[in-house]
Simulated scan of single mutants.
Amino acid sequence: CSGMTSFPFSHPNPLDNLCEGCQVTAWVVDANGCTSNSLVTTLKFLKVFTTSAIVTDAICTGDANGAIDLSVTGGPLPLSYSWSNGATSQDLSNLTAGTYSVTVTANNGCTTSNTWVVDEIGDPVVVIGTQISTLTKPYKCRITATVSAGTAPYSYYWNGSLLPGGTSILVTLGSAWSLNVVDANGCNTSTTGTSACLAFNPHTQNILGDNLEVSIYPNPTTGLLNIELSVSEECDGEIALYNILGEKLEIIYQGVVENNKFDLNLEKYPKGIYLVKVQTNNQILTEKVIYK
């Protein structure tokens, strides 16, 4: 401030021994040791003594691989550490998800405290969706898995075998199945079950012959429809889309019928009920599809 004069400062204890917020009384002493009581003043000592940390989260659910890398600013050495989990080291490792607090004590008895939270990325979450049967014997169920959480991309091991991009499989009705989903961090979630979808499709008509299986899903659909064919031997055939009045709207496929999959986009049509008809040399399969 204007008009103030600086004087050498003397105190029985070094400044490093003063904690944040300490009250210091100062006065002027001349070269002869004379003291001027008229200039006595009280100062508040604001020493910087703080902590900061870099937190590493645990990876899989229940893992103990989180860490806290602690840094301390200020405070005369040596420093001592007291963590809420009983540790006395500066840094923590092999941590599970949780809240961790530390009190750091400097050599002069000053302390500072702080708290950090270690999270975990977690395992994938697997939800088994609608199970849809094929239309002819032997009946099969489509087991569909929807995966969230964890870290993409995911690997799908159905019945112990890796199926690239395999979010679903066909399983014979009544058969056991298993799924192990492994994410990019190696975290995994397993689930098992027994296929228990409908043993018939109530919308199927005029089933002739036994060498053709058709799976149409999802049904109802919001636009995109999958049509899968499985045949015991190749034959000529046609897949066509009809409206509810029986009028043919388009030919989806015409030619040699093999084990194929076709995609049909209904978004160009009004929402409603449609028929997908699969016809080969000796059989006709008709499936009612709801577009909503």
Rank of each mutant, 00 (worst) to 15 (best):
C1M: 07
M4W: 15
T5G: 08
F7D: 09
P12I: 09
L15Y: 15
L18V: 03
C22I: 09
N32S: 10
G33K: 07
C34H: 01
S36L: 08
N37K: 08
S38H: 11
L39T: 13
L39C: 10
V40Y: 15
T41H: 11
T41I: 14
L46F: 14
V48D: 08
S52P: 14
I54N: 12
A58G: 13
I59M: 10
G62S: 06
G66E: 01
I68F: 07
L70A: 03
V72R: 13
V72A: 05
T73P: 09
P78K: 12
L79W: 11
S84T: 12
G86R: 12
Q90D: 09
S93R: 08
A97G: 04
T99N: 14
S101F: 08
A106R: 12
S113T: 13
T115W: 05
W116N: 11
V117C: 04
E120M: 09
G122H: 01
G122F: 00
V126N: 09
I128L: 09
S133Y: 02
T136F: 04
K137L: 02
Y139C: 00
Y139E: 00
K140S: 10
C141F: 02
I143E: 02
I143N: 02
T144I: 11
V147A: 02
T151R: 12
Y154F: 15
W158T: 09
G160N: 02
G160I: 04
L163A: 07
G166Q: 01
S168C: 01
V171N: 06
G174R: 01
A176Y: 03
A176L: 05
A176K: 03
V182F: 03
A184P: 00
C187W: 05
T192Q: 13
A199M: 01
T204S: 11
T204P: 02
N206L: 14
L208N: 05
D210V: 05
D210R: 03
L212N: 08
L212V: 15
S215A: 15
I216S: 11
P218R: 10
S232Y: 02
E233Y: 09
G237T: 07
I239R: 06
G246V: 10
E247G: 05
F262W: 11
D263M: 13
L264R: 05
N265Q: 06
P270D: 05
V289L: 15
I290Q: 09
Y291F: 15
K292V: 06
